[in-house]
Write a protein that binds this DNA or RNA. Sequence first.
RNA 1: GCGGGCGUAGCUCAACGGAUUAGAGCAUUUGACUACGGAUCAAAAGGUUGGGGGUUCGAAUCCCUCCGCCCGCACCA
Length: 571
Amino acid sequence: MATPYDILCARFQDAFDLLEKGADPVVRTSDRSDYQVNGVMSVAKRLGRPPREVAEEILRSVNIADVATVDVAGPGFLNVTLTTEFLSAQVHQLLADPRMGARRSTTARRVVIDYSAPNVAKEMHVGHLRSTVIGDALRRMYEFHGDVVIARNHIGDWGTPFGMLIEHLCDLGEESALASLSMGDLNSFYREARIKFDGDDAFKDRSRTRVVALQGGDEETRRLWQLLVDQSVEYFSQVYGTLDVLLTADEAVGESYYNDMLHAVVEDLDTAGLLVESNGAQCVFPPGFVNREGEPFPLIVKKSDEGFGYAATDLAAVRDRVAHVHADEILYVVGAPQSQHLEMVYATARLAGWLPATVRCEHVAFGNVLGTDRKMFKTRSGDTVKLSDLVSEAVDRADAQLVERATPLDEAERRALAVTIARAAIKYADLSTERQRDYVFDLDRMLAFEGDTGPYLCYAHARIRSIFRRLDAPWTAPETLAVTDAAARHLLLGIVNFPEAVSESLALLAPHRLCTYLFDLAQRFTSFYESCPVLSAEEPLRSERLALCELTARTLAVGLHLLGIDAPERM
RNA sequence: GCGGGCGUAGCUCAACGGAUUAGAGCAUUUGACUACGGAUCAAAAGGUUGGGGGUUCGAAUCCCUCCGCCCGCACCA
């Protein structure tokens, strides 16, 4: 279905085309009317005519009487007010549409989304949270849009640390090692291995020998390595489960997956004449990148010790995703600090012809996670909070609040709801702020049941649903709605703009746009609910208001679902 | 030094080049309670959008410059 916004854009485009072909009408939502058209001034400027005169001309030529009334205001703005009949028809269309008006793409694009990327035998921490939550939300939005998402969890499952990890596994004995790993005690496993590696020369030697065996394809070593990987992936899946993240074990396509492609990457770069030896390393120098001294800055593909750098893996991944996964779009949900590295990888892939201009390849960067003291969360030095601890603390606190508020649920339901609310809190807090900014992690704030939080939105939804549980007879929306109350109209206009919130959020890869929309919608609803009694109203007003309640609840639920958040029926 | 990001109310954050009042939330103050779920609503107060230039009919938004904070800058990913 075409949204009101679409219709207005099309109608005004036709009118603007008469004056200047292709001129943008600049249709926007407005606080002065339902929508405003701002494009008149710039057209008038280019035509050298008075803006108000141009506005009047557009007002005469635009074919819009069936949709809205239009007035000229100020220096040449057009204020657009939708007709009640039109809004009424919108309500009926939306009631019949589970997508709440959002278009479904007819040309499904294949979109690779690279997100989460934890390390094998290492704990997932807050540093992985943003990638996981943002990536998963984008995934849901793309799928909703009708695209095919190929998720890639680029786990760190290869490299020199695996020598010591495997040796440590052997020392502990497979059984007890795996038992400790399956308990999610990955930090101490890694730490113990590290301590031995640093303090025990014999262990260090064994570790190095083990790395060589691993890279050489030694069967027993590979088996041990696989144990570590499987155990970790199993653990990651548990964490994803608690967060309701869609990633599956199949989608854990880690660094090692690209091992067999690395030689070809280097050879083909060489053949293409892109490879340069520098300080013993094989490098590509994509133009435009310089180091501290202002000299060309290398992307190191093969290290001076003959080992492949991570750049080789990243290049192989891009190549694979284009050539074999047939991606139309590749998104890397990775922290902002890696921006330069990724830009260099993309530049090199373009030079090598592995990444055609038709394929969109983008770094979906996000800011650092900060503590409430505004200092960086440590990501490498070990002082980070385990993701799983963090989630369980959030669940406990959510549960405590539910108990305090005497929620009308039994114990089991309440515990389940606490999980839902904790997820909502964590995800919404992360998604609702502009990605690129640094992000302050504050459990107290995100778990608050008041304000711009996940729990509040859950509550807003549950509260509407409770109205319908009180009904003793079915209802149907009246043929024509009056929508006379300002608050009701304001709410309906919000509902009708859902598709634009979704498409804008997707186009900008900015989930916070959708969050802002949903919170605003919830506010419009409570304001409506305050001034417009529903159940006690006379028919047909009662049914009209029920229709608005129904549409609001569904819009909230669909929107929250796109963010990876469940909308509970009751709280 | 070079490159990138950020700088908006006490705090956490919005704002798609648009209209006299730059918006929310939290916190503060004041109203509304036997309330269709008060986990709420209404209102007040709180800002020379880091400073200074420029482009534009119109700038938090685009350009330049300066200041401050953060990140990256050769073989860890």
